[in-house]
């Protein structure tokens, strides 16, 4: 059980990383004036966590809200890259799909916990996952960026 869960988590982490790398990080503007923070790098994931948490807390419908979270993910990416729309339907589909998966993952975690509060700040499951996630994405981002800078040289 524990291992299954870990595997699932790892797979999801990678999926999110891939889509962020292809659709988000490479469109973020590097430069002196844009300080890139951990926060910005994992922003879309953060937004989905936030949204799912409040939707779950408000007793909304899981199916429709996790689907909606896909759009939250997509729009977070669009906003982060300074866009209002995308003209690429594949991009929209991909981001939505991954966002949705992420959201169901989070939702299920919430369902398993007894009350929202402890998940969020207390004993840690969700807070912990979020922490791991952002650390992971930050590391990945740095390596991607590093690789890119190498290539550019």
């Amino acid at each position: 059980m524990k291992n299954g869960h870990e595997a699932e988590k790892k797979e999801l982490f990678q999926k999110v990383r891939d889509v962020l790398r292809d659709r988000y990080w490479n469109k973020l503007v590097f430069g002196a004036r844009n300080t890139l923070s951990k926060d910005k790098v994992s922003r879309p994931v953060h937004d989905v966590f936030e949204y799912v948490y409040s939707a779950w807390e408000s007793d909304l419908d899981k199916r429709s809200e996790t689907a909606y979270s896909g759009s939250v993910f997509l729009y977070s990416v669009l906003k982060g890259t300074g866009r209002r729309f995308t003209s690429d339907v594949t991009e929209a589909n991909e981001l939505h799909e991954v966002g949705k998966e992420l959201a169901s993952f989070v939702w299920e975690k919430l369902e398993k916990s007894s009350s929202g509060k402890d998940v969020r700040n207390g004993d840690g499951t969700l807070a912990e996952i979020w922490y791991q996630f952002s650390e992971y994405l930050w590391e990945e981002f740095k390596s991607v960026k590093f690789r890119r800078m190498e290539e550019e040289k």
């Binding site: 429709s64 689907a67 909606y68 759009s71 997509l74 729009y75 209002r84 339907v89 589909n93």
Partner: peptide, 17 residues
Amino acid sequence: SICDKHKAKECIRGSPE
């Protein structure tokens, strides 16, 4: 044809915008 390919269909479900 774009709509046909688009899966999420925010026009039905809504989006943050």
